[in-house]
């Protein structure tokens, strides 16, 4: 195994282009335990953390640019990001302990393509985009198109994610993320649920969306949420119907972390709670 730490995007692209066995990493929080579990490390490991663009975190009128290798802790510490995307920051801040927070990156959390990745539902519900780079240049895709299944992304050989983009949120719009885990920390989501809600001056819903994690091979965008909620004031009945939609949208498995029935049920519970939380936040912005 060879460790390399390129300092430019071009250099990293060249390394990937010239070696089919090369793999990029940032936090290594998944990579190193896999190596411990006996899985072979790739011949060439490309550390992205010395490339300034990959560590970037900035906002302008156009929107947010988040380097794929920037640590979760840096995102969580950014007060403006916290106020504009509280749900996304909640999700990112749930990725492991403080130790993990200082290493784990959005790029790694998403590109490892675990169905339970905490940042997945929030990034999808907020319609983030991934900027992908290779020697062929840059291309930008909707975040929902990045993950294809457990451990599988749409990245072509030689490609990696350089950064993520998010629009600035409109007024009276907010997001939220909740997950269910047996422990308060150091755990993997049994179910994760992200919501994005927009309200009018009267607090009535003008738009809403829910995306679930850990209930299917990829994140699940629950259909029909906006139809149920737009025009409502998030009353119990409407939320209960949303919960039912979420439970139905799941395609969960039984595993050591939960049963199918439990996951379906929890998806509904979290949907109600996360929509309520996002609605409160959106209303507070009035």
């Amino acid at each position: 195994m060879m460790y390399t730490a390129p300092v430019t995007v071009d250099e990293a692209c060249q390394l990937l282009a010239s070696n089919s066995a090369a793999k990029v990493f940032a936090g290594a929080t998944d990579l190193l335990p896999q190596a411990q579990a006996g899985r072979r490390l790739e011949d060439v490991l490309v550390d992205l953390k010395r490339i300034p663009r990959l560590m970037n975190l900035e906002v302008d009128d156009q929107g947010w640019t988040i380097g794929a290798a920037a640590s979760a802790a840096r995102l969580a510490e950014h007060s403006q990001l916290r106020s504009e995307y509280p749900g996304l920051v909640e999700a990112v801040a749930l990725i492991g302990s403080d130790q993990i927070q200082n290493r784990a990156s959005l790029g790694g959390n998403l590109c490892n393509a675990s169905p339970a990745a905490d940042s997945g539902p929030s990034m999808v519900v907020n319609e983030a985009r991934a900027v992908i780079v290779s020697t062929a240049g840059f291309r930008t895709i909707p975040i929902a198109d990045l993950v294809r299944g457990p451990g599988e992304t749409s990245l072509e050989p030689g490609e990696f994610v350089a950064e993520f983009q998010l629009d600035r949120p409109a007024a009276r719009r907010a997001d939220a993320y909740l997950r269910f885990t047996p422990r308060t920390e150091m755990d993997i989501a049994v179910v994760g649920a992200a919501a994005r809600v927009a309200v009018d001056d009267a607090g009535r819903c003008t738009d809403a969306a829910v995306v679930l994690g850990a209930v299917a091979p990829t994140t699940v965008r629950v259909g029909g949420i906006a139809e149920e909620l737009v025009g409502s004031t998030f009353d119990e009945e409407a939320l209960a119907r949303c919960a039912a939609l979420s439970s139905e949208a799941c395609r969960p498995i039984d595993d050591k972390r939960g049963t199918k029935e439990f996951r379906r049920h929890i998806a509904g519970v979290l949907t109600t709670r996360v929509l309520r939380l996002a609605a409160e936040r959106a209303s507070e912005q009035r």
Binding site: Y3, G27, A28, T29, L32, P33, Q36, L45, D47, A73, G96, S97, D98, Q99, I100, N102, R103, M186
Partner: peptide, 23 residues
């Protein structure tokens, strides 16, 4: 050796890390 117990915690440039998760 998997970042789940923190016994190997060190500070790197002032930041808390599991040294088992760092090359």
């Amino acid at each position: 050796a998997t970042g789940d117990c923190g016994a190997c915690s060190v500070l790197i440039d002032g930041r808390l890390n599991c040294s088992c998760l760092v090359f």
